[in-house]
Structures are given as C-alpha cells and as structure tokens.
Design a binder for these strands. Sequence first.
DNA 1: GTGAAAGCGCTAACAA
DNA 2: TTGTTAGCGCTTTCAC
Lengths: 327, 327
Amino acid sequence: MANIKDVARSAGVGIATASRALNGTGYVAPETRKRIEEAAQKLHYSPSVLARNLLRSRSGIIAVMVPTLSNPFFASFTQDCEQLLLGHGYKTLICCTVQPQNSEQDYLDMLRSNLVDGILTATHSFNDDAYRESGNPIVSLDRNLGGNIPLVSSDHCRGGLLAAEHFAFAGCRMVLQICGSDVQNGHLTVGEAHRSCREALLASGVKSEILFTDWNRWDFTYYRRTAAHCLDAYPEADGILASDCLAMHVLTEALQRGKSIPDELKIIAYDGTDTARLASPALSCIVQDTAQLARTAVDTLLARIQNVPIPEPPVCNVSWLQGTTCP
Amino acid sequence: MANIKDVARSAGVGIATASRALNGTGYVAPETRKRIEEAAQKLHYSPSVLARNLLRSRSGIIAVMVPTLSNPFFASFTQDCEQLLLGHGYKTLICCTVQPQNSEQDYLDMLRSNLVDGILTATHSFNDDAYRESGNPIVSLDRNLGGNIPLVSSDHCRGGLLAAEHFAFAGCRMVLQICGSDVQNGHLTVGEAHRSCREALLASGVKSEILFTDWNRWDFTYYRRTAAHCLDAYPEADGILASDCLAMHVLTEALQRGKSIPDELKIIAYDGTDTARLASPALSCIVQDTAQLARTAVDTLLARIQNVPIPEPPVCNVSWLQGTTCP
DNA sequence: GTGAAAGCGCTAACAA
DNA sequence: TTGTTAGCGCTTTCAC
C-alpha cells in the first residue's frame, strides 16, 4: 500500500505539501495540487486511518454493547444507533455480552486503550464499578450505573401503568409479571415498569405475581421452557406481562394448550418490536420507541465526547399498541 | 492517560525494558519486572491499541456488512460472527447498508485505510467491481462477487428442492415464490433456491409464479403491503414461499382474511430463524444454519487474512423444519 | 539484563 | 507557497 511519502516523492514535493493538498488544508499551488492528486490516484493512495488516529488519539469508533443481537429489541436499537452514528462520522463496534466470558471489562478496556471513543452500553450485568472507574464517555441504556454516567431510558413507570390499566380494564383477576432477575439489584430501570404495574394492579384489586427469569438467557429453548413453566406453575393467571420474545412464546404455548386468547388469558408484550407485531393473533404491546432511545443515547454520548454540557437526557416515550391478546 | 514512558520513568527504567516487562517478551530481571508492574498498576496504565496497531499495520477489527439488523437472519448471522471472531481475538464492526447513501464503497475504503483487517459482506447491492478491486481479505455470504473472492452459502439448490417437495406433497396446484429483485442479476446464490424450487414444481405439474420484491427494502410497512399484494394479485395461489419476515406477514394477512391455513394456503418460510419459529401457527421452514454459515465465513476470512491456502468453503446445510403451515 | 534510537504513517508547527 | 522537523505511543533491533 502506497503511503504519503511515496505520493510526495512521486509528485516531486515534500511530505507536508502532499498532506496539505490531499486534505485540502493550508496553501498549495493549484498546479502542485494537481500533480499530487494525480500521483495519489496513480498509486492508489489511501491514507492510513491508523496513523491519523494515533495522532489525534481518537478512533472514530463507538462501541455498542448489548446482551445479544438475537433479541429484536437490541437488534433494532443497535441498528438505529449505527445509522445515527454513521451520520456523525462514527463507525459502530458491536459487543455482545451473552457469553459470560466476554467480560464487559474487556470491552471497557477498549476505551482506555483508545480503541473506541465512547461506549453505549445496554447490558444487564452487575459490575457497575468497572464502568464508573473507566471514567470515559459512556452512556447507559436502561441501567443506572451510578457515578455521573448518563442514563437513557423509556418512561417505564408509565409503561407499567399502561399495562396495568389494560389488564384491569380487561377484567383480569391475577396477573403474572415475568421479568429478568437482574432487575432485582435495582439498577435496571425496567424494574420500574414491573413495580408500577404491580402497584396499580393491586390498587385495582387485581392480584400480581412476579416471576424472575434467569440472568442473561436469551435463547429459544429457555424462552420456551419458561413459557411452559409459567402456564404450569400459575394456572390461575389470567394475564401475563412479558417482554416480546417471551410473550410470543407464551402466546404460542397457550394456544397449543387450547387456551382461548384473550378470553381465558390476556397477554401484553413489553417492548413492542416489529417482531412482536408480527405474531398472530397480534400481540397487544407496550411499545418502546427504539428510534428515540437511540437518538437520545447517541446525542448524549456525542455531547459527552465533545465535552459539552449534557442536558438531562429526556425520558423516552412508551405507547400502547392495540393487538388482540388484550383489549 | 498514562503512557509507557510515564511507567518507565516512574519505575526508573528505560522504555524498552518497560515494554518487555509489560508484554512478557524478552529478558527482564524479576525484580525490575516487579517495579514496572507496580508502576503500571499505580498509574492505571493501559497500552494504546492505536499505537500498537500502527506499528503492526493491523487493527484487529473485522467489518461485517449486512443490509439491516432488523432482519433476524442477518442479526443472527452477525451475532454468530461476532462471537466467533471474538474467540479469534477480533472485534466486529457492524455496517448496515439499508440506507443507500451509506455506500458500500465507504466501507470498502476502511479496508484500504487499514481500519479493518478484513470484511465479511452479506449485502445485496450491485457494485461487484468495487469489491474485486479492493483486493484485500474479503469473504462474501450468498453473493458471488467474482474475482477470487470466496463465497460462502447454504445449499440453496437443496433448499428449493425441499420446499418444492413439500408443496407438491401437500397437494398445491399453484405456488407463488417471492424473492428479492436482486437475484435477477444472477449473483445472489439464493436465486438457486427459487430456480430449483420452480423447476421441481413444474416437473411435478405444479404451477409456479415468481414475484420480485423491491431492492433493499426491509421494513415492516413494505412487508405488510407486499403480503397484502400477494394475496390480492394471486388469489389462485395455494402455496407461498417467502423469506421469514415476509412469510410471517403473509401468514398474518391470510389469517386476517379468514383463510384457513394450511387447508387453503400452504406457507413455507425460507431461512427458519428463531423468529419464524415463533409464529402461531408454527411456520414450516427451510432452515439455514446461520451458525455453520458464520463459522465457515469466519474461518475462510481468517485463512485469507493469514494468507494460508483456503479450502473450498463447504456448502452449508439446509434442513426442513416441520411446522403447521405446510405438512 | 538494559536502554538509546529508529520508525510505523501521518499532521502541524515552524522556517524558509 | 513549500519543506523540514517534531512528535502521536508503541515495539524492536542493536549496542552496551
């Protein structure tokens, strides 16, 4: 690969002149510029981003950390971030933490070692200290990392309330809320949804049970087993709240058992990704606005990187999407 | 951020010694090593990957190009690649080409400018020349780029055959095959599936129509419109072959119109991602083995990077997954 | 065993 | 307007 020295030599000019011409920075005679450009063309010159990065100590790369891309919510969020970041001149490095051995620490080290300029994390693990200590531009989705790490999240409180209202309105007597075990440490803001939902249900005289799923499990078989377990262990439940994938499995499993939906069992899917909207019968959903989440997260991160004061990130919208699994 | 010079100074040694101690390369007295390590610890030293990369002219990053992560097949493939690459010490840069302005060219330039060590492309656009000219380590999924760019793909010929067999067995008289318009340039290997399916159908006396979808469209509304269009425009079709997402929309739309599935209409989903397996009634699928595809693609790319001779990449398995939308 | 120095490819002061 | 030079932070000869 030809480098700038080759180009300069070939054009019969100094290195700095070549650099200036190629970057359009500083003075350079039109005729010289032409010679340089031709030389660059001829040699297929392409500047080394590596060298440039070292000089500027920035890589132009942002890491997006998610548990797994196989979950449509995270896939969608990642996709949205990638597009937005691209618009700001950043590339996106993807980090899936579904395998416990891919410790978040390794990913955090990328920040310190300058491999990435910032991190946008949407993972669910526990070691919050590592994040705080890492100190650099980090923005968190849906998980309160403490320190002064900006938190971006949906209005889960309202989300939970919406769900409760619809369950109650539909005449449920006993709702099973399925949520990740990781909400238990209290740092996951989605816990708010379950808290507010439960509170509102109880206030309306509806019973509520909470079932915690295993940590960091996002696979088909686990979902299916969990769905079956719910129906086995809580036969009296006439309402179930679960995130998209799980809700779809519950729906499938319930139909297979001959349950009539929504008559015998109401289901509300939390997240409301396109995937959930594809189920038949259509799932009733609490929809998180991934586009808004991504936009907020990216804007906040970029502000952080540029060291401009960041406005308190707005809480993102949730909305009700009427399906047929809960009126 | 402390650099190696700071560490060396703090430990009272030369830079080279510090480097050797920290990397465990070359001789260094145990006691000196200890001093250096302590200094590094104290200063929170973390080596700059940027500098190291420049020196080695490698970044340890692989780019994975897909149309969009919102499609579960690509999400799954990307996820699998990321995990495998991580095991080989590579990070994964994600490039979504759903927006036409994010030209593949920009991404290819990353190769030349050393930002990535290799590219794994699974996009569907047309400019094959750019790939060939870029010359560096590239592996293609499901798209014949020509030159000597390795191609990894499923046994689509068998996939199409399987589909045809099941349609015929189910007693279909007229099958509608929906496929991306991009197969028309003949470079997309998935075209094989449709070719072989159609051939086998015709041979069995079953009619076959092919409907081409727009290029590079992967959104919910487009899917839905297309599904509706299929049912409108081909009322006589009693079998439909479509990729997962579209198949799910067709299923939903058909049910909404009161069609009885599979009695009046058989549906086979091509890809068979977890998402499709979640539909109710369960979709009958031709399953591509994304794990195997990813493994093959990654192995081939790494061989290419290390400049070892690459065995002809094996054609990956497809299999039939019995659902209830086609017996 | 250790350290000085060269250099990866580039940009930005500073001189000329 | 152009060229020389000093680094960015690191690894790696090659003397000592």
